[in-house]
Design a protein around this nucleic acid. Structure first.
Lengths: 137, 137
DNA sequence: GTATCTGCAAAACATTTGCAATTCT
DNA sequence: AGAATTGCAAATGTTTTGCAGATAC
């Protein structure tokens, strides 16, 4: 039994062959993939894999609470196996998405008294350190 | 000359009939509309209006920097005439999107030293005050 | 044997593109 | 007339749906 399979079982998800492979991708490539990225990566070794299955599986993972949706860009949906509170930074030069920790107590939010907060997303866009160095050089 | 027309001229945008009407919507209905909401609202009084024009116009406003895109939901793009730094709260019960001011301490965001920050978006989902009161009653 | 899961094809939906007609100066 | 803008129709691209076949318990 591999990590992905074990992880699915721990979260009460039936570890089918496809689900294990997709979970394996998420655990070993922390690149906040799109559906397409997962599909194109797995397709060569799983010729009969359908994109529908990738859609269904990710939706299932989201419903089960073990994956979150990242909406940093308006024209693509990305997924993150890390559902803990953290922000996302997208470099508009190289396209890479970085995780960063934040402390909600250090963000002063006004006017939401008596509002119940269920989910918070912080998205930042800019130029990452690597690209900054390249641009300076 | 109305406010919308004046606002467009101040921002170096040719105030065509369609653009003025769309800007008028944005200024007077601060409801963070989708393309469809704008189109359906204006269509009755502008029978020849095309949805393409609404798309083109909003894209134009975004490029000119007088409108920003709100990506709080993965399946719909919304627009906001207020481009100042503020967060968005969506009530998952009534669907309304609220604006709220925020303040991020520099210390809060760890690991982004030497990163250039160009845009920040904070999205919160939960239950708004009104819906909370209704649910308690 | 029954329930679940998968994958194909088609459908639905949102957005973009090409282009001709219109408008404005 | 010339440049910008609009609106229709078609194209594109992504996500969902329906359903039959496969798989697992």
């Amino acid at each position: 039994m591999n990590n992905a399979e074990q992880y699915l079982i721990e979260n009460n998800i039936n570890p089918s062959y496809q689900r294990v492979k997709i979970m394996d991708y998420l655990l070993n490539n922390r690149d906040h993939p799109t559906i397409d990225m997962i599909f194109l990566y797995l397709k060569p070794t799983m010729p009969k894999l359908s994109k529908t299955t990738v859609y269904n599986t990710l939706q299932h993972f989201v419903e089960k609470g073990i994956t979150q949706i990242i909406n940093i860009e308006d024209n693509e949906i990305r997924y993150d196996i890390d559902t803990s509170a953290h922000g996302h930074f997208k470099c508009t030069s190289c396209g890479k998405i970085y995780d960063f920790p934040y402390n909600i107590n250090d963000i002063t939010i006004c006017g939401l008294d008596n509002f119940s907060i269920h989910q918070t997303h912080i998205y930042i866009k800019g130029i990452c350190e690597k690209c900054n160095k390249k641009l300076k050089a």
